[in-house]
């Protein structure tokens, strides 16, 4: 059959079909191709991921380089920090702004409004004179509520009340404790220490590895899981890993994955 008669035959065929059927035919043809391409790429990706990398950290380092372990300016811009202190002059507000962190300050906060603080990544919190309902130790109530959330913000306790045994929990629940007045370098060092493992791609990858290390599974299952997790990270969660083998820590892994999806865009 020559080309002209081939087109003629095709035309006759399509003419004999309804418009909807035509559309379906075209879509299924294109869709089939796309699915095939996606399957092939996923297969290739899986081969590369599982074969090449022994850990999530190795993969992250290969993808993001050393830069992936740094709190870059773009990343800092997306980190939400709040200062909660009746005397904001005790905290290096201008310095934290100069580092381009997304900073909000509160000189007091009512118990009814504590949920406002849930959206922050880091809360720098004083204990005294910050909650009108409990001027003496209101900060303790704030930290208790924040730390009971499924994904609590990091809290840096800033207070000189370390002498008071009745508020020991305020300091124990905090991720870091700093003296007042807070020095620029000390707050920056505390932020670096806390944030690197929870916001940078390399740090988060290491956190995932460390968490998996605490959970005993067979070497083979671990390899498979590594491959699946890398796939999830590569696709921003479009391909989700199987958590069957690691159910008890799945929530914590998932939390780290979500953080990764959110912050890794700052490194593109």
């Amino acid at each position: 059959m020559d080309p002209i008669s081939l087109i003629e035959t095709a035309k006759q065929f399509f003419d004999g079909q309804g418009a909807l059927a035509n559309a379906a035919g075209i879509v299924s043809f294109i869709g089939g191709g796309a699915i095939a391409a996606w399957k092939i790429s996923a297969y290739v990706l899986q081969r590369v991921s599982t074969k090449k990398f022994n850990s999530i950290s190795e993969w992250a380092l290969a993808k993001y380089g050393n830069n992936g372990g740094l709190l870059t300016e773009k990343l800092r811009q997306s980190i939400r920090i709040s200062f909660v202190d009746d005397n904001l002059a005790d905290l290096p507000e201008a310095y934290i702004r100069s580092l381009k962190y997304d900073l909000t300050t509160f000189d007091h906060i009512s118990l009814a409004d504590i949920s406002i603080l849930e959206r922050f990544d880091v809360v720098v919190l004083d204990i005294t004179n910050v909650v009108p309902e409990d001027m003496r130790n209101g900060g303790l109530e704030i930290i208790k509520r924040l730390k009971s959330l499924p994904t609590p913000p990091l809290v840096i306790a800033v207070s000189q009340k370390k002498y008071d045994p009745t508020v020991s929990n305020f300091f124990k629940l905090a991720d870091a404790v700093l003296k007042k007045p807070v020095k620029e370098a000390e707050l920056e060092a505390a932020l670096n220490r806390l944030l690197i493992t929870l916001v940078t791609p390399n740090g988060l990858a290491k956190s995932i590895d460390t968490l998996l290390d605490t959970y005993v599974i067979s070497e083979n299952d671990r390899k498979n899981l590594n491959g699946q997790l890398i796939k999830a990270l590569e696709t921003n969660g479009k391909i989700m890993p199987e958590f069957e083998n690691i159910k008890p820590i799945s929530n914590r892994i998932n939390n780290l994955l979500q953080r990764f999806y959110r912050f890794s865009v700052c490194y593109v």
Partner: peptide, 18 residues
């Protein structure tokens, strides 16, 4: 002195800080 008094009143506080 304040650091020492903090520990005296609340020994737990010796473990706090960076």
């Amino acid at each position: 002195s304040f650091d020492m008094l903090s520990i005296f009143f609340n020994p737990e506080s010796a473990k706090l800080g960076e």
